[in-house]
Amino acid sequence: MHTGDPARNVVLAHGGFVDGSGWRAVYDLLRADGSHVSIVQNPTLSLDGDVTVARQVLGLQDGPTVLVGHSYGGAVISEAGTHDRVAALVYVAAFAPDKGESVGSLTADPPPGVPVPPILPPKDGYLFLDRADFSPSLAGDLPAARRSGRWPSAPARPSSRCRAATPSTNRDPMPSPT
Rank of each mutant, 00 (worst) to 15 (best):
L30R: 08
V26K: 01
D5Y: 02
R147S: 13
H14L: 10
G81Q: 04
G34H: 10
D48Q: 08
G73W: 03
T44S: 13
Y91S: 07
T169L: 11
S35R: 15
H83A: 12
L58S: 00
P158L: 00
P110R: 00
L45P: 00
A80M: 13
W151H: 09
P117T: 14
S168G: 14
S38K: 12
A145Y: 04
A32Q: 14
A32S: 14
P155H: 03
D5R: 09
S46H: 05
T107I: 15
L47S: 04
N9F: 10
K123G: 02
G74F: 06
G15F: 11
S168I: 07
G4Q: 10
S35T: 10
G69I: 03
S21D: 04
G113N: 06
F95N: 08
V116Y: 01
S35Y: 14
V66Y: 04
H36N: 11
A156M: 13
K99Y: 05
D98V: 09
D109C: 02
V90E: 07
F17L: 09
R8P: 01
S38D: 14
D33W: 01
P110T: 07
G73S: 00
V53Q: 14
P97E: 10
H36Q: 14
L67F: 10
G140T: 12
V86S: 03
S102A: 14
I77D: 04
H14N: 12
P167F: 05
S71R: 06
P167M: 09
V114F: 04
Y72C: 02
G74L: 07
A164L: 15
T107N: 10
Y27A: 08
A54P: 07
L127R: 10
D28F: 03
A75N: 08
E101G: 00
T65R: 11
I119V: 15
G113Q: 03
P64Y: 01
G100S: 02
P158N: 02
S46E: 14
H36V: 15
A139P: 01
